[in-house]
């Protein structure tokens, strides 16, 4: 067998679970472009990536945590908090805006790290800690801003969520950052902590630290999703992130993160979130009532699982 053939086979095997997802995505994209020809322009792509970007960010946040064997039910609340903080802290000038965004992301990372420390060091179950955390964070968002308000500088909204494909560029940057992370010891530690925590621990991996790092990164990503949503809508909203918790889990699961950890990929999370967003857009154009989305999202999850079972069976 030639080296190239071997490599191709390896590539096929490594992505075996993802090919069907990519095929489905391509088919849906064609349907979407046919229903909505405006998609095929720079502005069209820019607009589409904007609706996708927050979902992609939270999918990534959830994937990271699930990779290390955890779960985070407070992601939606964190997006809300990021959103109201951004509408409060981000100033008019470029420096003030940059400092404001950095502050929001730092707050998100700190809250995430705290959650991670409670889960990893105190050994409390992640599901209930993050569920309680979602109440704490949602409450904090309501304290910052009891009702929608605040503002974002117009130029920032235009730069992030205008006619330029900034969101797409940021997604590509994230992809590169992920690659870099995967090559670092921390990236290996995260994978190992999810795949086989005991084995990782015995091999000298600081499992608690890796877990705390995933929660911190996830908090930073989710709060940045909040900043982006604030830029999109031009204001803060203390409950805007709520549906994103479920979306993040759905996308991560669609993208192939097992609950066993250690097997998720960025392209999986990106593809999963893309599938979710296209599906909702296509359903909108086909004239389904908005609530039909709920039923569709639920059915997609079950279908994705059934397909995986057929493949394995």
């Amino acid at each position: 067998m030639s080296g190239l053939e071997l490599q191709l086979r390896l590539l096929w095997r490594r992505n075996a679970g993802l090919w069907s997802l990519f095929t489905l995505l391509a088919a849906l994209l064609v349907v979407y472009a046919w229903l909505h020809p405006g998609l095929l322009s720079i502005a069209g792509v820019a607009r589409f990536t904007q609706t996708w970007f927050p979902v992609a960010l939270v999918a990534l946040a959830q994937t990271l945590i699930m990779l290390a064997g955890g779960i985070d039910l407070s992601i939606g609340a964190m997006v809300s908090l990021g959103c109201v903080l951004a509408a409060t802290l981000v100033g008019e000038t470029a420096t003030a805006a940059g400092l404001g965004i950095a502050a929001v992301v730092a707050i998100g990372a700190t809250i995430g790290a705290t959650t991670g420390a409670i889960v990893a060091l105190l050994r409390l179950p992640a599901i209930i800690v993050t569920l309680a955390g979602s109440f704490l964070i949602a409450g904090a968002a309501l304290l910052v801003m009891p009702r929608p308000g605040g503002s974002m500088p117009d130029w920032l909204s235009d730069a992030l969520a205008g006619d330029r494909p900034t969101a797409l560029a940021m997604l590509i940057l994230l992809l590169i950052a992920w690659r870099v992370l995967q090559a670092t010891p921390l990236g290996h530690a995260i994978n190992a902590a999810g795949d086989n925590p005991q084995g990782a621990f015995r091999s000298g991996v600081d499992v608690p630290l890796a877990r705390i790092a995933t929660y911190a990164l996830s908090g930073a990503l989710a709060s940045f999703a909040g900043v982006y949503v604030a830029a999109q809508t031009g204001a803060g909203d203390p409950v805007i992130g709520m549906p994103l918790t479920l979306d993040s889990i759905t996308a991560a699961v669609l993208g192939g993160v097992g609950f066993l950890g250690g097997q998720g990929t960025l392209r999986g999370a990106i593809a999963g979130s893309l599938l979710l967003v296209i599906l909702i857009n296509v359903m909108f154009f086909l004239g389904f009532p908005p609530v039909a989305q709920y039923v569709a999202k639920g059915l997609i999850i079950v279908a994705a699982m059934a397909v995986r079972l057929l493949r394995a069976g």
Binding site: I118, F135, G139, L142
Partner: peptide
């Protein structure tokens, strides 16, 4: 206020979890 109620509820759950729900 709604915000404080939510925070109080979350904090109490977390606190009680520390007391009684710890999984060794």
């Amino acid at each position: 206020s709604a915000g404080w109620r939510s925070i109080l509820f979350g904090a109490l759950i977390l606190g009680l979890l520390l007391l009684s729900g710890r999984d060794r």
